[in-house]
C-alpha cells in the first residue's frame, strides 16, 4: 500500500461530496447525471483502495459490477433525458415539477 487507507478514503469522500453537490445544486438534467457519475467513481475509488489495503480482489470485482451498473444506468437515464426533452423541450428540472402526464 503506497499511501494510508485513510488518505484514499478522504479523497473518495471529497469526490463523492463534489458529485453530491452537483446533483443537489445543478438544475440541468445532464449535469445531474454527471454528478451521479462522479459519485459512482468516488465509490469505486474507495473500493479499489480497500482492495489494495486487504490485498483482496473482491473490491475490484465490485468496481467491475459498478461499471456494468453505470453503463445500464447511463443508457436508461440518457434515453429518459431525450424523452423529457422531446416532451417539454427543456432539460431544466424545474419544468418537470408536476406528475400529471
Amino acid at each position: 500500500m503506497i499511501v494510508p487507507l485513510e488518505h484514499v478514503l478522504v479523497l473518495s469522500t471529497v469526490l463523492f461530496t463534489l458529485g453530491l453537490i452537483c446533483v443537489l445544486a445543478r438544475r440541468n438534467l445532464i449535469m445531474i447525471l454527471i454528478g451521479v457519475e462522479v459519485m459512482l467513481n468516488a465509490v469505486g475509488l474507495s473500493f479499489v483502495g480497500a482492495s489494495a489495503f486487504w490485498q483482496n480482489l473482491d473490491g475490484q470485482m465490485m468496481v467491475i459490477f459498478l461499471m456494468a451498473m453505470t453503463s445500464a444506468e447511463v443508457s436508461i437515464s440518457l434515453a429518459m433525458v431525450v424523452y423529457l426533452q422531446r416532451r417539454k423541450n427543456s432539460v431544466d428540472v424545474r419544468s418537470f415539477n408536476e406528475m400529471r402526464g
Binding site: 467513481n41 482492495s51 467491475i64 453505470t70
Partner: peptide, 23 residues
C-alpha cells in the same frame, strides 16, 4: 497505483471512452 491495472484500463475504455462519449 492502487494495484488495479485492468480496472485502470477499463476506467478509460468504458468511462472515458464509452459513457462520456454517449453523454
Amino acid at each position: 497505483l492502487l494495484g488495479a491495472p485492468l480496472l485502470a484500463a477499463w476506467e478509460l475504455i468504458i468511462y472515458a471512452g464509452a459513457i462520456m462519449v454517449l453523454f
